[in-house]
């Protein structure tokens, strides 16, 4: 685990054609500065894992608009302001894998937890399970789903201590802990850094073992500076 001093440095190692998980649900937990740095960094041919497929003209939407995303794996791509994704999709310029949100989360969790595959009831009997292996266990129908791994994860946490233990704020936690664990190299932007020993060990939501690179980008505007 190492600290770097800029978002630019934090994303320097991301390679073309790699799979990148990007945390956040809405604005909560979105690693805005890391995504902007990835846009500037230039890696292309990316497979991106996110809950959505970009909103408006910035962040992930801009990465898509620039043609840098070959494939997106998400639960809910179509939104009122997902016009860049919509355009690329209709032009056949981006591949889409739609995954029910809980299956998406569990596939990510399974990758970090070393699970080979799992049977889930979600999606059974629907078109999103077509072609997939199914099994009836104790009278319940399940669909076989495989883990989802990534080369890199870009997430946002609230506080890191010196060894990369992380805490989150409120619903900004969302995909942060599971994406950090599911990626070969996890990069986290935090809003505060504290010394080892100054974080309550009981409050650690992501132990530092899952964290490779941390960049501290304080944000004056975020509420709850006291929490």
């Amino acid at each position: 685990m190492n600290f770097v001093t800029s978002a630019e440095e934090a994303v320097r190692g991301i390679t073309d054609d790699s799979t990148v998980m990007i945390g956040g649900f809405g604005v909560a937990g979105q690693p805005v500065e890391l995504i902007d740095a990835l846009i500037d960094q230039g890696a292309t041919g990316l497979t991106v894992v996110n809950n959505n497929a970009g909103n408006g003209d910035v962040g992930l939407a801009r990465l898509i608009a620039l043609g840098r995303v070959r494939k997106i794996i998400c639960s809910f791509p179509r939104q009122s302001d997902s016009w860049h994704f919509d355009e690329k999709y209709r032009a056949g310029e981006i591949e889409l894998e739609v995954v029910p949100q809980g299956n998406l989360a569990e596939r990510i969790r399974a990758a970090g937890a070393g699970i080979g595959a799992f049977f889930t009831p979600t999606g059974y009997g629907t078109e999103l399970a077509e072609g997939k292996e199914t099994r009836e266990i104790d009278g319940v129908h399940y669909v076989l789903e495989y883990p989802l791994r990534a080369d890199f994860a870009l997430t946002k946490a609230w506080t890191s201590d010196d060894v990369g233990n992380l805490t989150y704020r409120k619903t900004a936690r969302n995909f942060g802990p599971i994406m950090a664990a599911a990626s070969s190299h996890s990069t986290v932007q935090v809003s505060r850094r504290v010394s080892a020993g100054d974080m309550d060990p009981e409050a650690v939501a992501t132990p530092g073992i899952y964290v490779d690179t941390v960049v501290n980008i304080p944000e004056a505007s975020t509420k709850g500076q006291d929490s």
Binding site: F76, R78, D86
Partner: peptide
């Protein structure tokens, strides 16, 4: 036809 598929948490909510 032509609609972009988007499911979100609907399938998880339905059966959970």
């Amino acid at each position: 036809p032509g609609a972009i598929p988007a499911v979100g948490g609907a399938m998880d909510l339905a059966i959970g």
